[in-house]
């Protein structure tokens, strides 16, 4: 099926960027189904994925309403190509091992929790309502993943080494969490969007606190990867979308 063209006004783009974060991370977590190291984590990973996909659905639906070109949540999820996706590079990185998946969840939740909390006072009533739910869900994800940071970092030599490797791999993707462009700036200045810079101190404090309890050293900020917000992705997203969009691209409009 052909890809759709989205009328990317600043507000539509702003909503899509957040929706794509939630869908891509939710899809990544769904890849763990049947593969988790223990039953409790099988449930946890699936439930966290479900929360994120639920957030994505609400955001896509609203983006489609704002765009007013007849695109529903399915059209926006299944019929945009890789360049049309505006998610953070962090959330598209492969699952790797359990340590890397939990670290990715922790780094994102430590950001999304205060971000959505700030969004609850948005002038946009729909975004504020979605944020009121997302905030609580991400607080729960933060707690769960933070507990794992401490258990793995302050655990065995093997779990610690894996978490250290994950930290070195994922840290270069954390700078993008706080990137904005002039389009986002417009939505923020309208009192609708949230400036990620306003949650930077909270994020840094949370990450520093948990890594210290995990007896790990917080990496220094070096070269940071970016581009996801403008559709320039790592090689991982294309593979993810091939899987995610396969059915609708092969049998357009399939339902059951």
């Amino acid at each position: 099926m052909t890809s759709i063209r989205v009328a990317e006004t600043p507000l539509v783009l702003y909503i899509l960027r957040r929706a794509d974060d939630a869908l891509v991370l939710g899809h990544r977590l769904s890849e763990w189904c049947g593969r988790a190291p223990m039953m409790e984590e099988e449930m946890a990973l699936a439930n966290m994925g479900l929360d994120l996909i639920g957030q994505a659905r609400a955001l896509y639906t609203y983006a489609g309403e704002v765009e007013a070109q007849g695109h529903d949540e399915d059209a926006l999820a299944y019929r945009r190509d890789e360049r049309g996706y505006k998610n953070l590079l962090l959330v598209e990185q492969g699952n790797g091992d359990f340590a890397r998946t939990m670290l990715r969840q922790f780094l994102y939740a430590a950001y999304a929790d205060p971000y959505w909390r700030a969004m609850t006072t948005s002038r946009d009533a729909t975004l504020a309502a979605i944020a009121a739910k997302a905030e609580k869900e991400m607080a729960y994800h933060l707690r769960h993943s933070a507990e794992w940071m401490i258990r793995l970092g302050d655990g065995t030599a093997e779990s610690r080494a894996r978490l250290e490797r994950a930290l070195a791999t994922l840290w270069p993707f954390t700078g993008e969490l706080f990137e904005i462009d002039t389009l986002d700036r417009e939505v923020i200045d309208d009192g609708i969007g949230v400036d990620p810079d306003s949650v930077r101190d909270t994020w840094t404090a949370t990450v520093a606190d948990i890594l210290a309890r995990a007896t790990l050293t917080m990496p220094a900020d070096g070269y940071m990867q970016k581009g996801g917000r403008n559709g320039r992705h790592s090689e991982h997203l294309g593979h993810l979308l091939t899987e995610l969009q396969y059915l609708q691209r092969t049998i357009p409009g399939a339902t059951w």
Binding site: D51, G54, Q55, R57, I130, K133, E137
Partner: peptide, 8 residues
């Protein structure tokens, strides 16, 4: 109104 965002 939904309880949880992803409530199936």
């Amino acid at each position: 109104t939904p309880t949880y965002c992803g409530c199936p």
